[in-house]
């Protein structure tokens, strides 16, 4: 090792630092871990809660239509929740398994996956929910005239598509402002080598 680096090393090691003690940090970490556990529980609790709610509102066991409606909606929700879980709680992953180059690549993929929730999974969920609701309404309004039934299906579908379109566009704008530049910065960092 040359002398110039040795002199820098001496400087580097000379820096005196005052850091929090381990016990205080452990208390904070235990609190954060417990909060994170609760957040995950709440996220996953929302699925059975919705299913139970739908089972109360719709006589699912008395009608195949309602049962299908519930299954479609639950499947769509499960898909979204799984994607959210993967992106929101992936900090539990073992970062040390990656060297810096692999980590940058891994993180770019993770951010791209997050963008897919908006561009792909939200629309799949919208389609499943749309199918579920329309199947449920087939039975709920079967006694009405065909024209009225058609109009109700059309209105509900139109409203739902409009709602999802607006929500997805809003999310896309947020992604463009936050995730896309982050991905670009990570890519440029990767190319620094």
């Amino acid at each position: 090792m040359d002398q110039s680096i040795k002199s820098l090393q001496e400087l580097w090691h000379h820096k005196k630092v005052h850091l929090p003690d381990a016990d205080m940090l452990i208390t904070k970490l235990n609190q954060a871990e417990s909060r994170s556990r609760h957040e995950r529980l709440i996220l996953w609790f929302s699925l059975p809660l919705t299913i139970v709610l739908l089972m109360i509102l719709l006589p699912v066991f008395g009608s195949a239509y309602f049962l299908f409606a519930l299954l479609f909606a639950a499947f769509g929700m499960l898909m979204i929740l799984w994607q959210m879980h993967k992106t929101k709680f992936s900090k539990i992953e073992n970062d040390a398994q990656f060297n810096n180059s692999e980590f940058i690549q891994h993180h770019i993929s993770k951010l791209n996956r997050k963008m897919l929730i908006t561009s792909r999974y939200m629309w799949i969920y919208a389609f499943l929910l749309l199918a579920g609701i329309n199947i449920g309404y087939l039975e709920a309004i079967e006694n009405l005239d065909i024209e009225v039934r058609f109009l109700i299906h059309l209105t509900i579908s139109g409203l739902l598509i409009f709602f999802f379109y607006k929500a997805i566009q809003k999310r896309k704008r947020k992604n463009s402002a936050e995730l896309v530049p982050l991905i670009d910065l990570l890519k440029s960092m990767k190319n620094e080598d």
Binding site: D95, A96, F98, N100, F103, I104, L182, L185, M189
Partner: peptide
């Protein structure tokens, strides 16, 4: 090495967010 990997990976991400 294990700690340095975590530290440097976290630092890369932290500074990228900060640069943003």
């Amino acid at each position: 090495t294990w700690i340095y990997r975590i530290a440097t990976n976290t630092a890369l991400l932290y500074v990228t967010r900060r640069d943003r």
